[in-house]
Design a protein around this nucleic acid. Sequence first.
RNA 1: GCGGGUGUGGCGGAAUUGGUAGACGCGCUGGUUUUAGGUACCAGUUUCUUAUGAAGUGGGGGUUCGAUUCCCUCCACCCGCACCA
Length: 853
Amino acid sequence: MSRYNAKEVEAKWQAGWAEHKSFEVEADPAKPKYYVLEMFPYPSGRIHIGHVRNYTMGDVVARYKKAQGFNVLHPMGWDAFGLPAENAARDKGVHPADWTYANIAHMRDELKGMGLSLDWSKEIATCHPGYYGHQQKLFLDFFRKGLVYRKESWVNWDPVDMTVLANEQVIDGKGWRSGAVVEKRKLDQWMFRISDYSEELLNALDKLDRWPDRVRLMQQNWIGRSQGAHIAFDIIGESDPLNIYTTRPDTLFGASFMAVSADHPLAQRLAKDNPAIKAFIAECHQMGTSEEAIEKAEKKGVDTGLEVAHPFFEGKTLPVYVANFVLMEYGTGAIFGCPAHDQRDLDFARKYGLEVTPVVAPDGTDPEIFETAYTGPGKIINSDFLNGMEIEAAKAEVIRRLEEMGKGTEKINYRLRDWGLSRQRYWGCPIPMIHCAKCGTVAEREENLPVKLPDDVTFDKPGNPLDHHPTWKHVSCPDCGGEATRETDTMDTFVDSSWYFARFCSPRADQPVERDKVDYWLPVDQYIGGIEHAILHLLYSRFYSRGMKETGWSHVDEPFAGLFTQGMVTHETYKSVSGEWLLPDEVDHNDAGELIELATGRAVTVGGVEKMSKSKKNVVDPGAIIEKFGADAARWYVLSDSPPDRDMEWTDAGATGAWRFVQRLHRYIGENMMGICAVGEKAPSEFNENALKLRKATHKTVAQVTQNLEDLHFNNAIARIYEFMKVLNEFMWEDDRGTQWALRESMETIVQLIAPMMPHLAEELWRSLLGHDTMLVDTPWPKADPALIVEDRVTMAVQVKGKLRATIEVALDEQAEKIEEIALAQKSVQNAIGENAIRKIIVVPNRIVNVVI
RNA sequence: GCGGGUGUGGCGGAAUUGGUAGACGCGCUGGUUUUAGGUACCAGUUUCUUAUGAAGUGGGGGUUCGAUUCCCUCCACCCGCACCA
């Protein structure tokens, strides 16, 4: 029996499926739909093993659902805008578009080599005007609905690269690329009103019951709802009050100072005449935003000299400080400080000698506050009309009285802030807006869409090439026809990925989406991707879906009905004698079984198992893996090793094991071909014991694997298939029709069950060995016969005092008395009971007997 | 600091509502086939043990006839958020 040649066979069936357009689909309301989507890749140049794992999982779901009779949409595209293309332009002098499209071409070939059941006719790339032009249309619709606005806001500015940096790109207060100290700058930015949807986005999480709890929790924390109050404090000698936000109105009598942010209008105003405040504000702006910097930063402030009146405490006044720990972006940018019950306030009060009055007492005792604020439960003290109340009651009472006085109100606050989408970069979707000196900022006319990026740009100087372009930004105003300039900022690439799943429904439409297509396909039934997108991408997409609904483009609020986050692929790390990281390919075992560096023969230090990264070189190349073992073996291995949501460790031995299974299955079916009946032969009416045993195992396996695939427990599905292989190996061949029929049934079944995971091998076995002339990809999923799954005899465990002493085989649903009798007759059971009296016997039908002595 | 998760052999991991712990794979050990092999097949593989049993799912305690599963507590590791008032 010759070896299975994966390379040849895989190429053959990939071509075969393409030729038969096996995975091209159209919306068809008569058929049930299923939309499977994996997070689309950034075209960095080559696929990595993480992609292989991600897309294999999606492919299993897609192929399985197709076999179940669903009309399956399974598309692929490219998240093709972004900074790496511009970096390549600066470093290598290649145009971002050329670089990106070349990468796409290469990665497309790599994905095709995996044998994915993708509808390539629906491929999209976000950097194509045919995509981003429609994104501009959506932007204008959002603008008209008031979902986009322009606002001056603080940004991280890299003075060398002359661009805004996202918070994630600021490392220890420095630009991640330039290394320059990042400045805080105020710039006009386009913003999405995502914060208007805080409550809606939060509440709707409850309905996403096919999302991981972890992701829902992360979004919940990110949105960050808190319940509290706004309170207006009268500033002595001023007409306007100081408005603050607090979640602890119950501690109002413990207030000993007020603090406002350095960016608070009051601080800004006072700074004009007060050099100390001015200097302090400058100091605050220099403060690092890194976690470390914040942790180390001392609570500092400067007294403004102003005082406010306590709303309830007649005659009591509180000093107003500008403080470095108050954030302008949260609440009102101002707080009252209650040192006894807030650690930050306490630190601040100790530094400036402010009073500390406890107002919440645990167990009714007067607590002494030294260096630690008390934030636990208790009863209110030292607080006039609140004394004796529980915290929650006191909060309600304070709010009630403030509302009566017109000095406060209950207020729910959210951490979520509006989404700034402006980026000072070339390789992104142009924002279709025009600035006119006369008319202000106006929308580009729709007939002028798409606003295309100019091709003739240079990257020889820092900053945004669109700004430097000689002509591109100079346009006439759509309203008055006068001289005007185009917005040169482009959109955050997260905008591109916030609606691509909708575009896939009608990827060539001459408008953003076609309603009937979207109505049929959306929401995505199963979305699969990395946990790293748990917050931003998924939250932005949820917001965008709502925006598209409000602008009439869609009917769904929630774009992803089911979400699955897969784990990372890890690998051992290796270091040479000289301390350099080594690729797994540069390392091998010598005859003595020690790891050595191939080039030098010297010993290698094995480091920890870590996430694959270029810097530590613990990467394997999917192309080389597929070349060596075949796509099926690679797919089988990434599915079999670990539960799909956990990290898996890539080992060469594991991949080899998968490859061996491919060979074994191919060999087994080839060798047993002569023992089976012809294709399509009718089942005989009678089966002997041998054949029946095989049929039962077959149908049980179908039931189990089907359930495992429904639950996305791919590793368990594979374990069940291995078990079934064992049964096949032990099976007794007999020259009778029932056995021959049962054997064909079992072999066809195993081929069908592996098909979602190893589609090429399955198709090959189905056609070339099992002799079908139809395609396996068009064959319905096998059904388990319930009558064959039920065993008529079961094995029960017999325990004495909870310890296993024997197992007995009895009829299914045997009477308890009979079971007791059999159990007690067992010698090992009698020995364990000995002279003891039996106190009672517990019988759990079909499972266990426990004799209590 | 706040929130959440995980912990089972040498390794990855199985185990319906609490009901035979270690399925399946990898690795390892021994054997078979005159085996070019990263071959194939068979047997074994939690630990201890007087070979009869005993212990055992991070540690300790509890509920129960019975706990990997439920409760309390401690430990370790991982993830998310973080000067959010």
